[in-house]
């Protein structure tokens, strides 16, 4: 589902330049949940952003669900994100002026969203038990409720890839567990889930864990704790 090869990304310039990704490769199969772990500042979130076409690599290729990401225009990338990617962020990023339901249905209102996406969104709200939260606005909800709404929003267009950046980093244990269960259940036969985390419980629910060290991914090692960049 995801095939990234030789990804390079540098922050800063001149003597202050720091290469956080230095030829990183990532492969994720359908139905698989992959956890990316690593020390704080090693480039875990950067990798996720590149795969999700939120940022551009300086070198390397990315293919998601059969579509090449690298070298495409911003207009094409917008369409790509809409069709292929669902994002879940550590800080939820719900629009404070909108109710829970309006936030969930936001992607369904984008031009090019498939017909029936709104109904699918409402079904998700019901299925995830967010009926009450859907009527309220973010500042009236708990962190767990907000993140579950964010997951529902990420799934509303039924993307083949779900990318989650520290999804439980801002939640208590109970809420975090509920969100993790939701992510786990999202990894269906047609969907891959990639989670950036520094929490053992998150990597524990993954099918596979990879570690980012010196700008490259390595197979699972004992978990190194740290925040995402």
């Amino acid at each position: 589902m995801i095939a990234a090869r030789g990804l390079v990304k540098t922050y800063g310039s001149g003597r202050a330049a720091r290469r956080v990704l230095d030829g990183a490769d990532l492969d994720v199969a359908r139905g698989e949940v992959v956890a990316i772990v690593g020390r704080s500042g090693t480039g875990k979130s950067t990798l996720l952003h590149l795969v999700g076409a939120l940022d551009r690599p300086e070198a390397g290729t990315i293919e998601v669900a059969g579509e090449r990401v690298d070298g495409r225009s911003e207009r094409e990338l917008s369409g790509f994100r809409r069709r292929r990617i669902g994002f879940v962020f550590q800080f939820f990023h719900l629009v404070p002026e909108l109710t829970g339901e309006e936030n969930v249905l936001l992607p369904a209102r984008l031009p090019g969203a498939p017909r029936g996406a709104r109904e699918h969104g409402r079904e998700l709200i019901e299925r995830l038990g967010l009926g009450d939260a859907a009527r309220r606005r973010p500042h009236e909800l708990s962190g767990g409720e907000q993140q579950r709404l964010a997951v529902a929003r990420a799934l509303v267009l039924d993307p083949p890839v779900l990318l989650a950046d520290e999804p439980t980093g801002n939640l208590d244990e109970e809420s975090g567990a509920a969100v993790l269960a939701l992510l786990r259940s999202a990894a269906t036969a047609d969907r891959a889930v990639v989670v950036v985390t520094h929490e053992p419980r998150t990597s524990a629910m993954a099918d596979r864990t990879v570690t980012l060290v010196d700008g490259r991914l390595q197979p699972a090692e004992p978990l190194l704790f740290g925040g995402g960049r």
Binding site: G52, L54, E74, R75, S78, G79, F80, R81, R82, R83, I85, F87, F89, H93, V95, L106, P107, L110, P111, G112, A113, R153, L157
Partner: peptide, 16 residues
């Protein structure tokens, strides 16, 4: 800025 970035992350183009 974060709200607009979120929209773009979800696939909103320049038109949106």
């Amino acid at each position: 800025r974060p709200t607009l970035a979120l929209l773009r992350a979800q696939g909103a183009g320049t038109g949106t």
